[in-house]
Write a protein that binds this DNA or RNA. Sequence first.
DNA 1: ATGACATGATAAA
DNA 2: TTATCCTGTCATA
Length: 284
Amino acid sequence: MPEGHTLHRLARRLDAHLVGSPVAVSSPQGRFAREAALLDGSRLLAAEAWGKHLFLDHDDDRVVHVHLGLYGRFDVTRTPGEGVPAPVGQVRMRLVAEDGPKGPAYADLRGATACELLTSAERAAILARLGPDPIQGHDPTPAWERIRVSRSPIGTLLMDQSVLAGVGNVYRAEILFRHGVHPLRLGRSLRRPVFLAMWEDLRVLMADGVRTGRIETVRDEHREELEALGAAAGRRRRSRSYVYKRTGEPCVVCGATVRGDVLAARNVFWCPHCQPAPRRRAVR
DNA sequence: ATGACATGATAAA
DNA sequence: TTATCCTGTCATA
């Protein structure tokens, strides 16, 4: 689940249900117990996201930095009347607002790659290493300045959080498909209008993701065909993407067989017809 | 029961 | 490049 849209959605949910009130902080699993004890009873002032990072501002210049990594979750639940249930599984951090903005609520963090107590100065240091974030409507210029001179593949640059923040493997695959760009094209071979169109598209798609909580990249006109192709391929769950995890299945647009490979330890997917391979650089 | 895998990132080699 | 961490889910046995 966790690409940038997930974290922004989370910031929004925390803001709606927990921010502004005193929170009980605990670590049922124990790995955040010392910090939780320090924070217990503090007031949660704000929840903010930048790319895939989430920051919880508590009073007294204390910031909880959360990064969900590959499989972390942070579930925010309202508990009108019922009281808070016993923790299930490995709950690293639990926040409970008895008197949240919309009534009692709690949030359980599991599996995060980062859950740490920082100062606001330390948070600033993390932000300084992140590129612009499409979800925040940032100016894409700093990202473009990196890409236009880079000898790295655009598929790698899109995932580099210091180039731009928030894009993960699904949005990467899908945005490249939607713009007919092969993942191995070098950054410096891209034309500016193409990158700016990708950025604008990311801005819209990821904003949708914040609203719906899921990554939807397939245009209405292709939904039915995708469904039919999925059924024909005998897949158990229907796909919601053009190329992501569709290796070996036909492209919805042109029928070519979607390809998959590993780039920088991550799976990449593309259509060999809609996303023509770059001319191989002369090697010698 | 066991193992592979995942929408991530880092440190070491 | 590889190993490693974090946890849950799904497929296979």
